[in-house]
Amino acid sequence: MAEPPGFLTATINSIANWSRYNSSWGATFGLACCAIEMMHTGAAHNDLARFGMEVFRASPRQADLMIVAGRVSQKMAPVLRQVYDQMPEPKWVISMGACASSGGMFNNYALVQGVDQVVPVDVYVPGCPPGPQSLMHAILTLHEGIKSGEFVRV
């Protein structure tokens, strides 16, 4: 039986946000230990595809979300910023793990003490490294934020 023709009222913003959070593609920005857990999150056992996230784009120009997975050194920080700048708007950043969020246990000359000094961060994930469940929770938190419009800066 065919559905009767219906209509839907919504704001443009909520439609746009709905489509944004349902397919937020990540840029691969695996740096250190957390990248392995990020790989595990995307692989069969944890299956990030359930949340419309199975594609990690190799090119930042095709990505909406940068998951900074690991410690960011002083030498890497300009590269990180450049990759972030190459991503199209709107874009989001998840800082995965203690090192990316605050330098972690390495408070020394070589590391940027928190990636939020270089790029704006939306969600921080604690843990060293955070397990796949933590990362998925962070991604779902981000999705909620995008859906409600809280995290959209355009």
């Binding site: 002083q74 030498k75 330098g103 408070n107 020394n108 000359y109 070589a110 003490q113």
Partner: peptide, 20 residues
């Protein structure tokens, strides 16, 4: 290991750890 414009040699003992 470090960028070219780095000043100093961090593993020398008279260089501090650089903690903030």
């Amino acid at each position: 290991m470090l960028p070219d414009d780095w000043d100093g040699h961090p593993l020398r003992k008279d260089t501090p750890v650089g903690a903030v």
